[in-house]
Write a protein that binds this DNA or RNA. Structure first.
Length: 580
DNA sequence: GCCGTTTTCGGCCCGACTGTTTTCAGTCG
């Protein structure tokens, strides 16, 4: 296995794009590398494998030249052009482009004119006044560069806000704006509307009878720390959390154009507009210009925008240019929170949960679930809230007793067993066999090699009493990367053994991610959407798991826990094995 | 460097803002 990963190929193409850009290559060549990197990153099959089979040019954005570069990576581990560019372009130049207002062209000019090749030499030039003497660079430029350097902008990656926090703020801003007398429509747009993992800032779009009046109302909303005008009919502010908020307001007859434009993604809009140009139409946030008539059509709704372009309306979660604009695209019926009939991963006070067994059961009933698996942490969890085998046996009794008393819901006695470094679960098979349901997850020894971690997790997937793998990559959005693991190998093993893979709904996990979840479903793996709730209130976190499933194009038939209990029960590996 | 109801060359989304400019290039979203 241990093959050249899609991520490694995409990283190489992104680096090539950055270096070619600094080298002064034509922008479209740079763009070609960026597009290729994006498409490789979101491919649901192994791009290295495709390349060996001679089929990689079927991937959009990959032609003969990039095919050769991937082949070079497979055969030699590197790309000659990349090695050469790294020798020629000083490594400090890329960091300089992270400063606001400083792009590849200016970096190149500073390097050529003044020999500036790092943040340090840039600061020295600005402080000595040498910077504003360069051709095309004035006093203002020098000042803004120093301000940005002092603020440490170039060292720290721009902070991103996890979607649940962004949505909480966004929903409050939207509600407040809708209360304004001038408001006609107010919606969250941007990556938040597409339900991305995290957002850089929050885009809110609105239609109003008096646009300027509504734009001015942003400043009065309590979640905002600061707000001010940002041109006519626009406002910009910052929430107390530091999240930037942009508001744009138009007349009602342009609201569809504005919402479509600001929902993005950039890649979706570029692809959409390129296709429109071929039909003689030019799309912007203000309307659709028809070359033939010279007239601009304004659209009050998004549906009208897509209809004018000969397309059916596309769900925001799909707008990533991952096939939703391909000819013959049929809009999929995406899974919703209401489709879920059970939750297979939650905790109680027995381990680190905050709610009792009874409260979790009641919470599930209030959500209308037909089944709930109680999956407390296991024997080696640590933190003082591990569950010994004897304690788990007593919990099985309690779950069975409560299940007998409750009507309308089936409680499953389960566990979230730790996958030990050697791949074994941390309870005996005998005990696991007594349970109704076993989720297995990695909670320790994250720093293994990819080969060892993959072997560890494949062993767990092959274990007869492990029904599902929880949060399969261990990532924490904006906090830590996934551990090194070959997800393709996990998917293959899960498909082969009938083991389910989870989309964990904890807002900072959403693990599997959208790309992996789509690949898993395409491989025939049954995907779960779970809350991983640690109290009854957080059972609602399935919202974020459903968001990821939708971004993965998944419908209810691909999510195991949309099934009624009678059907789900038979999908469990332990039941299928017993029947075989 | 890719790609094709303007196909194998000549295109490649659209608009706003900024600063350094007398008409625009670069950056950003």
């Amino acid at each position: 296995m241990a093959d050249l990963s899609n991520t490694a190929i995409a990283d190489a193409f992104d680096e090539l794009a950055d270096l070619y850009e600094l080298d002064g290559a034509v922008v479209h060549r740079v763009l070609a590398y960026r597009t290729a990197a994006k498409n490789v990153r979101s491919a649901t099959v192994s791009v290295a494998q495709l390349t060996r089979e001679g089929r990689v040019t079927s991937l959009p954005g990959i032609g003969r030249t990039l095919e050769e570069k991937i082949l070079a990576m497979i055969e030699t581990g590197t790309i000659p052009a990349l090695t050469k560019l790294r020798d020629r372009i000083p490594p400090g130049l890329a960091a300089m482009t992270r400063l606001p207002g400083v792009g590849p062209k200016r970096v190149r000019a500073l390097y050529d004119q003044l020999g500036i090749d790092s943040l340090e030499t840039l600061r020295a030039a600005a402080e000595s006044g040498r910077l504003s003497g360069a051709k095309g660079f004035g006093e203002k430029f020098s000042e803004s560069v120093l301000a940005a350097l002092d603020a440490g902008v170039a060292e720290r990656p721009a902070p991103r806000t996890v979607l649940d926090t962004a949505m909480e703020i966004g929903e409050r801003v939207v509600a407040a704006l809708r209360d304004h007398p001038a408001a006609v429509h107010v919606e969250i747009a941007g990556s938040a509307r597409r339900l991305a993992d995290s957002v850089k800032d929050l885009d809110i779009v609105a239609a109003a009878t008096e646009p300027a009046a509504l734009a001015g109302a942003l400043a009065g909303i309590d979640v905002l720390e600061t707000a001010g005008s940002a041109g006519e009919n626009a406002a910009r502010g910052r929430a107390h959390t530091g999240l930037g908020i942009d508001l744009r307001v138009v007349e009602p007859d342009q609201f569809g154009n504005l919402l479509q434009h600001f929902t993005g993604s950039a890649a979706h809009n570029v692809a959409l507009r390129e296709a429109a140009v071929r039909r003689g139409l030019h799309v912007s946030e203000y309307g659709i210009l028809d070359d033939a008539t010279g007239e601009t059509t304004r659209c009050a709704t998004e549906e009208e925008v897509y209809e004018r372009l000969g397309l059916a309306w596309i769900e925001p979660e799909l707008r990533e240019d991952r096939g939703e604009l391909a000819p013959g695209f049929v809009p999929p019926r995406l899974v919703t929170v209401e489709d879920l009939r059970g939750d297979l991963h939650c905790h109680t006070t027995l381990s680190d949960g905050r709610s009792t067994l009874e409260d979790m059961a009641r919470g599930a009933q209030e959500r209308g679930y037909e089944y709930l698996a109680i999956t407390d942490h296991s024997a080696t969890h640590g933190f003082g809230d591990h569950v010994t085998p004897d304690e788990l046996r007593r919990q099985i009794e309690r779950v069975r007793e409560l299940d007998a008393r409750l009507d309308g819901i089936t409680l499953l006695a389960g566990t979230e067993t730790n996958i030990l470094p050697d791949g074994r679960p941390d309870y005996d098979d005998e005990l696991l066999a007594e349970l109704d349901w076993v989720v297995a997850s990695v909670h320790t020894s994250f720093a293994m090699s990819e080969r060892d971690m993959t072997a560890r997790m494949v062993a767990a997937i092959e274990h007869p009493w492990i029904d599902a793998i929880g949060h399969p990559t261990g990532r924490k959005i904006s906090k830590r990367d996934a551990y090194k693991v070959d997800v393709d190998a996990l998917i293959e093993a899960a498909a082969r053994t009938g083991t389910m893979l989870e989309i964990n709904g904890a807002p900072d996990r959403r693990d599997l991610n959208d790309v992996h979840a789509r690949a898993a479903a395409e491989a025939g793996v049954m995907v779960l959407v779970d809350s991983d709730a640690h109290d009854a209130e957080r059972l609602k976190h399935v919202r974020w798991g459903v968001a990821t499933a939708r971004r993965a194009w998944l419908g209810p038939e691909q999510i195991a826990n949309t099934r009624p209990w009678a059907e789900f029960a038979g999908l469990r590996k332990r039941v299928k094995a017993a029947a075989a």
